Amino acid sequence: MLTIIAAASENNALGKDNDLVWHLPDDFKRFKLLTSGHYIIMGRKTFESFPKPLPNRTHIIITRQKNYTVPENCIVVSDLNKAISICPENEENFIIGGGQIYKQSIEIADKIELTRVHTSIDADTFFPEFDTNNWKLTEKQHHPKDEKHIYDFTYLTYIRK
């Protein structure tokens, strides 16, 4: 199963200057819970935005750069199809960004785990528009803003129809 996981604002903003545009600790915890022990597919810029590889996950980095070197437990490929072909077939595998990789995978993904952040924000990277007629919303959980979270947000789980 191929699952896209992302946090996007109401105007689909994901990030700016290769960084997130908010700090949502509970969303980070959910991301870790869902992706730990799995293969995670990302673009090079997303990978480079991490201080170090995320623990307990196999990283697949998509880049056109030849001889791109990565730490142990990371795999480099040249395109999305190669990335998917490396993943275990009978497991949930995650697309974690960035914007171009989401755009390339939105038509082939089986599931979307979207954290909808209830704000509109200035960004340079966006989550792609997707036709909700092709998806069934199976879970919805609202999280109000609080002392640790500057924005309200809602976890949305979509399964392809």
Rank of each mutant, 00 (worst) to 15 (best):
M1S: 14
L2P: 01
I5Y: 02
A6I: 04
A7P: 06
N11F: 09
N12A: 10
L14K: 02
D17C: 04
D19T: 14
L20N: 07
W22Y: 10
D26M: 04
F28I: 13
F28D: 10
R30E: 08
F31V: 04
F31I: 06
F31G: 02
L33D: 14
S36N: 12
G37Q: 14
G37N: 14
H38A: 15
Y39N: 04
I40F: 07
I41W: 01
M42A: 07
M42E: 04
R44H: 07
K45S: 10
K45V: 08
F47C: 03
E48G: 08
E48D: 14
E48Y: 09
P51V: 08
K52L: 09
P55F: 12
N56L: 14
N56R: 13
R57S: 12
T58I: 15
H59V: 05
I60R: 00
I61R: 00
Q65T: 13
Y68Q: 07
Y68V: 06
T69D: 14
V70G: 01
N73Y: 12
I75K: 11
V76E: 09
L80W: 05
L80S: 02
I86Y: 13
E89W: 11
N90S: 15
E91A: 15
N93T: 12
I95T: 01
I96Y: 02
G97R: 00
G98H: 00
G98F: 00
I101G: 01
I101R: 02
Y102N: 00
K103R: 14
Q104L: 15
Q104K: 13
S105K: 03
S105R: 03
S105I: 05
K111L: 11
E113H: 11
V117D: 00
H118K: 05
S120R: 11
I121L: 14
A123D: 03
D124R: 07
T125A: 13
F127M: 05
P128R: 11
P128L: 13
F130Q: 04
N133D: 14
T138E: 15
T138H: 09
E139I: 08
E139K: 12
K140M: 04
K140S: 08
Q141E: 11
P144D: 05
H149I: 04
I150V: 15
Y151D: 04
D152G: 00
D152Y: 00
F153C: 00
T154N: 00
L156T: 01
Y158T: 03
Y158D: 04
I159G: 03
K161A: 08
